[in-house]
């Protein structure tokens, strides 16, 4: 194999990994904060992509994409916030909350999926990319859209990390995640903080949807694949640290890129799931995990 090919695979793996990180971080933040596994996360990605498509196609070009990048996350933030009150909060004091929320989030996923089908129809759509052409760099040429995706993804992840670590609300969210009762005794409105968490997760999912929608086709069931990928990432990396799913996402992205090249597109999922089973067998808490669940 030539060095050039290797570099191309590496870059496409990193771009893919960035997108997976963006999808998985929402899932892992919700899991570590509320203790709920959000099966609707994949449909958040799909819904975000459709809303972005709707907005951007009416305006077109780069301004349309930009408008979509604003409207979709904001809309999904509000939807996520509201869904916490409908899906999770009613079971707050139920000992079976984990199981019940699996069912309610699955239900929400299928309702949202059907709604997408009703509103936008089953035809495949694609969001118009904001930048075209290639960037030449040291004799190699990379798709400008890929580079944009990668840079924006890294920026959003860094912003999220800053928010959780440094901002007042982010710290409060971490406090509520680590000890619900103590956070309540300090006077935090924990329900609001939890809803905020789902809202932020949904907003990041929308951004992921926007970028995936601009490199692939979107259809109403398109949320399934992102959910699977984030699931693999979260299991792969564990959720002990904010960075563990991010690192895992890049590893998964690279593995996928390399297995697509060496074994073909159809073998990539099998290889990923095979690796996931191996990780589950030898290190069930994830590659970068500990046996604790915090932010």
């Amino acid at each position: 194999m030539e060095l050039e090919t290797l570099l191309y695979i590496l870059v496409s793996g990193l771009v893919l990994g960035g997108l997976y990180a963006l999808m998985a971080i929402g899932l892992s933040v919700v899991w570590t904060t509320i203790g709920v596994f959000n099966f609707a996360h994949g449909t958040f990605v799909a819904l975000g992509a459709y809303i972005a498509w709707q907005v951007s196609s009416s305006l077109g070009g780069a301004p349309g994409f930009l408008l979509g990048a604003v409207v979709a996350p904001v809309a999904l933030f509000m939807i996520g916030y509201a869904l916490h009150y409908a899906l999770v909060k009613p079971f707050e004091r139920n000992p079976n909350i984990v199981l019940l929320s699996v069912i309610t989030t699955l239900a929400a996923a299928s309702i949202i999926e059907s709604m997408i089908q009703l509103i936008w129809g089953p035809r495949e759509k694609q969001i118009e990319a904001p930048v075209n052409g290639n960037l030449e760099f040291a004799g190699l040429s990379f798709s400008a859209q890929d580079i944009l995706t990668f840079v924006v993804t890294l920026f959003i992840l860094a912003a999220l990390a800053w928010f959780l670590k440094r901002s007042r609300t982010g710290r409060a969210m971490r406090a509520a995640a680590q000890n619900r009762e103590a956070a309540q005794l300090m006077g935090f409105n924990v329900t609001h903080l939890y809803a905020l968490t789902i809202g932020i997760a949904a907003a990041t999912a929308a951004i992921a949807g926007l970028f995936i929608g601009s490199i692939r086709f979107i259809n109403p069931t398109f949320g399934v694949d992102p959910l699977m990928k984030s699931l693999i990432v979260v299991i792969f990396g564990g959720v002990a640290h904010f960075t563990s799913p991010i690192l895992a996402a890049f590893i998964v992205g690279l593995i996928e890129a390399f297995s697509v090249y060496f074994f073909g597109l159809y073998w990539a999922p099998s290889i990923l799931f095979g690796l996931m089973i191996i990780v589950l067998l030898i290190k069930p808490e994830g590659l970068f995990g500990f046996q604790r669940k915090t932010l």
């Binding site: 710290r171 971490r174 406090a175 680590q178 000890n179 009762e181 103590a182 956070a183 005794l185 915090t294 932010l295």
Partner: peptide, 12 residues
């Protein structure tokens, strides 16, 4: 109310 044996927020 300062809770009994309060574990507070272990990772902060």
């Amino acid at each position: 109310y300062v809770m009994q044996g309060n574990l507070l927020f272990p990772e902060m």
